[in-house]
Design a protein around this nucleic acid. Structure first.
Length: 610
RNA sequence: CGGGAUGUAGCGCAGCUUGGUAGCGCACUUCGUUCGGGACGAAGGGGCCGCAGGUUCGAAUCCUGUCAUCCCGACCA
């Protein structure tokens, strides 16, 4: 391709709307244009990148025996009602774009495809003989993100590869899950990305085991915690660790402490000389559901620990009354909300675990009893400091039994704390957790039978019995991956694409187009490279050399062939975008020198074939 | 949705405090010189000052409303 015909529009200044390097560079180098918040046009250069990523994804998926398909983006509401996800995905902070057709029927724009594929499986899959089967597609997904961000990183419209596998039993599911794990590692390696697999929360998708693939980069939205020995890696949402030991509280009889104006753990400890690990803090929250009444929560944590909201949401979903389903949100209870419910004000700065359900009596819409949860670090404290449930008063030397646990109320112990960098690991307390930031580019799930049961997708097993299908699902954010690659591979001059996903592999730059010798040699090398199967650009623009070099660096073409002063003597210069290689050589030797290196680059970080 | 910020030419910005009818750099067009790391000179073209009301003889500038975009939080590939 000739650069003069490429519609290459590069910007000299950083666009004000972009914050992180990859977003800035994709805009500056002419890869994307914003059409609306979270909605981008993929310009020709980016489309080539996306196609290359897709090709690698296809290649590896096909190699596992998965079948490519293409499912509708416009999906009927009733499918989602049957799976129980319509309300959660459309009401409140739901992310599904939805609309009515001319008949008044409700439709959603597919944010994911479990419902469609499962309905299809129910139709197509009858016998264990057809199993296992794994279907995948690469298409645009629509999600009305609460906050679109960072260009392609979190768009409202984005390209995703999603795969769904169906199995006769859990063991078969585990095998395909493992095969996907391996395929994903190869995909990211072939794309030239350093990615790490971490244990993950399953989120709204549901199911049991799940694993995320993170491209490590400063701008990543996720915090990942890993052990130095590499045996443990998890998203902080999910990570478990050993909390630091609590400082023991001197054994004193239960006593009240006057604490005017001390409404935070920090102030309380500062004034009275306690350590935060000697205190129990109590959070009052309200869980709202798609179905069922709001549930007040009383959550206890050791004073030095932080609440993990994902763990809390999972615990609440598991423990909520049967009538409640589709957890929408959990938020702190405010004095205004209490008033709206017709309830008396509560002493928020000095709450204790012993706060009785009586304070909820007469609530207009809420469940009249607290769901009481305590983190294990709080439950394990023999003696602690906590609020007395009266303004400006705390208790010293409290214990769970002295407060009346088991008698007037019970509290469930669950893991609710955030694991922190520096915490000891469970698998080996000598190992500490280290933090890194990551961009989630892939996520694989063992779904189990959640969707197949809801949508009645069953098959006949070997003994003639009908059984619900076992399912797995496996996603890769293709457009996000492209931007993640830029985030991981750039420098002060621009993008440094890995060869395997670069829009073009080589750019031939005649330093001076006016010089016929240079122009002719450049043309001839351009042809030679094309004939050798190389994806090559010829920068035939009548720009000065500096402009062409700057643009080549900015758009990140991995190899540059400069045809300059040495052209008359048949000498050219070969420059690698990333790294330091820069060598003069005879034009006739170009293929001999370049092709082996290109071939290596095309494999990305994947192992050499043996 | 809560908190913060910004909307002036394709991009980056100034002008707004103190109202007088819009400017700079880059990009674009033409000509000339230049030609290995974003050249120089000359001459041009391009603006509903986000939008709508209001105040005023007069509004980019003051007031009110509204829309859009970005950042921090909840969501996720």
């Amino acid at each position: 391709m000739r650069v003069s015909r490429l519609l290459l529009v590069t910007l000299r200044d950083d666009p004000a709307e972009a914050e992180i390097p990859s977003h800035r560079l994709l805009l500056r180098a002419g890869y994307i244009r914003r059409v609306s918040s979270g909605i981008y046009a993929y310009l020709p250069l980016l489309w080539r990148v996306l196609q290359k990523v897709s090709r690698i994804v296809r290649d590896e998926m096909d190699a596992t025996g998965a079948l490519e398909t293409l499912l509708p983006q416009l999906q009927p509401a009733d499918l989602w009602q049957r799976s129980g996800r319509w309300a959660g995905y459309t009401a409140g902070e739901g992310i599904m774009f939805h609309l009515h057709d001319r008949q008044g029927r409700e439709l959603g724009l597919g944010p994911t495809h479990e419902e469609v594929i499962t309905a299809l499986a129910a139709d197509l899959l009858q016998s264990y003989r057809q199993l296992p089967v794994n279907l995948y597609q690469i298409q645009t997904k629509f999600r009305d993100e609460i906050r679109p961000r960072f260009g392609l990183m979190r768009g409202r419209e984005f390209i995703m590869k999603d795969a769904y596998s169906f199995h006769a039993d859990e063991d078969s599911l585990r095998q395909t899950y493992a095969a996907m794990d391996q395929a994903y590692r190869r995909i990211f390696a072939r794309c030239g990305l350093r990615a790490v697999a971490v244990e993950a929360d399953s989120g709204a998708i549901g199911g049991s085991a799940s694993q995320e693939f993170m491209v490590t980069a400063e701008a990543g939205e996720d915090l990942i915690l890993t052990s130095a020995d590499g045996r443990y890696a998890a998203n902080q949402e999910r990570a478990v660790s050993l909390a630091p030991e609590a400082r023991p509280l001197a054994s004193v009889p239960l006593a009240e402490l006057n604490t005017p104006g001390l409404a935070s753990i920090e102030d309380l400890c500062k004034v009275h000389g306690f350590d935060p690990s000697q205190t129990v803090k109590v959070l009052l929250l309200l869980a709202r559901f798609a179905e069922g009444r709001p549930q007040p929560l009383l959550v206890c944590l050791r004073g030095d620990q932080q609440l993990n909201e994902v763990k809390l949401a999972n615990a609440v979903s598991a423990a909520a009354e049967p009538a409640a389903s589709g957890l929408l949100e959990i938020a702190p209870i405010s004095p205004e909300q209490l008033q709206a419910e017709g309830l008396a004000p509560l002493p928020f700065g000095s709450l204790g675990p012993q706060l009785g359900d009586g304070v909820l009596a007469g609530a207009r819409s809420w469940h009249p009893r607290f769901l009481r949860l305590a983190d294990a670090t709080a439950s394990a404290l023999p003696l602690f400091v906590c609020g007395a449930c009266r303004p400006d008063t705390h208790l010293v030397g409290a214990s769970w039994s002295s407060l009346g646990a088991q008698a007037d109320w019970t509290i469930s112990t669950v893991d609710l704390r955030n694991a922190q960098p520096g915490d000891a690991c469970l698998h080996d307390p000598e190992q500490r957790l280290h933090a890194a930031r990551g961009i989630e580019v892939g996520h694989i799930f063992q779904l189990g039978r959640k969707y197949s049961q809801a949508l009645e997708a069953s098959f006949t097993n070997e003994s003639g019995q009908n059984e619900a299908l076992w399912m797995g699902c496996y996603g890769i954010g293709v457009s996000r991956l492209a931007q993640a690659a830029v985030e991981q591979h750039h420098d002060g001059q621009g993008i440094c694409w890995p060869v395997s996903i670069a829009p073009y592999e080589v750019v031939v730059v005649p330093a001076n187009t006016e010089d016929p010798t240079q122009a002719q040699l450049a043309e001839s090398l351009y042809t030679t490279l094309q004939e050798a199967g190389v994806e090559v650009l010829l920068d035939d623009r009548s720009e000065r050399a500096g402009v062409k070099f700057k643009d080549a660096d900015l758009i990140g073409i991995p190899w540059r062939v400069v045809v300059g002063r040495g052209a008359a003597a048949g000498q050219i210069e070969l420059v690698e975008r990333q790294g330091s290689l820069r060598q003069d050589l005879a034009a006739a030797e170009l293929l001999t020198v370049l092709l082996p290196r290109l071939e290596q680059g095309r494999r990305g970080l994947a192992e050499q074939p043996t």
